[in-house]
Each structure stands twice: as structure tokens, then as C-alpha cells.
């Protein structure tokens, strides 16, 4: 079983890795690159805990092969903070208690960041539908939705 050599960019850094053809990007991130911030909640694209961006697109890394990363630019939760400064969404989630157990949080944050990049002024309904693929079982979503909207307002004002 020949491994595939992949050259890609992850969180702005050039990365090379070897993967098996059937390994998903999530497997590669977690098991090969030890970037365990992306979580496996289902492995079938139904929970969003493994969300990453590939180029300007939000995807489930469990539904992408590692081999497909060739030449792409991938961002994971590990790249969201800027040095020792948290991204405004990360900060807002902390301030507004928008997480409980925290397992869905990386995926939610990546998804919310992708939303605000496209739509800096989303309605509550737009946030809810955008994040419908990010399951959270702890919060009832209330504080997550509020934190995203409050952060969007802050970022528009800044």
C-alpha cells in the first residue's frame, strides 16, 4: 500500500505529509500531524466538529481525503488565534459562556469565522442556518448564536 506524498499549507505554514489513500483529512490532521483540535464526532459529515476551511470554503475534514489537500490552503482551529491574541470570536465565546463541554467549539468557531468572512451582518436566522451543521448538545445554541452576533457587531464597529 503505497503512501501518497502531499504538499500543502496548513494555518499558513508549508506542510508535507504521507497518507494512505483512504485516510481522511481529519485522520491526517489528528493522527499524522497531531493537530487534535479538529474533533471526530461522527465521521459522516453530520456533526461539524471536524470543520476546517479549504481555500475559502468551509468543509468537514472527515469528508475529504488527505490526498485532496495537495496544493490547498487549509485552516484549522489551531490557526485561529493570532499569536497570543485570540480571534474576536474566541474571545467572545469565552466572555459569553458560549461553550460548555467544548467538544463542538473548535468546529463552531471555524464555521462562525467563515460566516463572518462572507456576511459581516448576519441575522439570527442566517447564523442559525449557517451553523445547522455544527451540532451542540450542551448549550441549546442560545449563547453560541448570541456570541456570534455580538462578535459580528463588534467587528463591524471596529
Amino acid at each position: 500500500m503505497a503512501k501518497i506524498h502531499v504538499t500543502t499549507t496548513i494555518n499558513g505554514e508549508p506542510v508535507e505529509f504521507l497518507c494512505e489513500p483512504q485516510q481522511t483529512m481529519l485522520d491526517v490532521l489528528r493522527d499524522e500531524l497531531r493537530l487534535t483540535g479538529s474533533k471526530e464526532g461522527c465521521a459522516t459529515g453530520d456533526c461539524g466538529a471536524c470543520s476546517v476551511t479549504v481555500g475559502d470554503r468551509l468543509v468537514c475534514s472527515c469528508l475529504m481525503l488527505g490526498a485532496e489537500a495537495e496544493g490547498q490552503e487549509i485552516e484549522t482551529i489551531e490557526g485561529m488565534a493570532d499569536g497570543d491574541t485570540l480571534h474576536p470570536l474566541q474571545q467572545k465565546f469565552l466572555e459569553e459562556a458560549a461553550l460548555q463541554c467544548g467538544i463542538c467549539t473548535p468546529g463552531v468557531l471555524i464555521a462562525a469565522k467563515a460566516l463572518l468572512a462572507k456576511n459581516p451582518d448576519p441575522s439570527e436566522s442566517e447564523v442559525r442556518y449557517w451553523l445547522a451543521g455544527n451540532l451542540c448538545r450542551c448549550t441549546g445554541y442560545d449563547k453560541i448564536i448570541r456570541a456570534v452576533m455580538d462578535c459580528a457587531a463588534d467587528m463591524r464597529g471596529a
Binding site: R34, T36, G37, S38, Q90, F93, L94, T105, P106
Partner: peptide
């Protein structure tokens, strides 16, 4: 009151180690 949780930073940065994260 509602201070920021002490373990919060690790949970918003992907640093927190859950069950499957130990190798």
C-alpha cells in the same frame, strides 16, 4: 457573577485534550 472560565482558553483554541486526543 459570570467570570471567564479558567479552562476556557484551551477549549477555544483546540488545545484541550479530550478522550481520543491522547497518544
Amino acid at each position: 457573577t459570570s467570570p471567564v472560565r479558567p479552562d476556557g482558553n484551551d477549549k477555544v483554541t483546540g488545545r484541550a485534550k479530550f478522550g481520543a486526543d491522547l497518544m
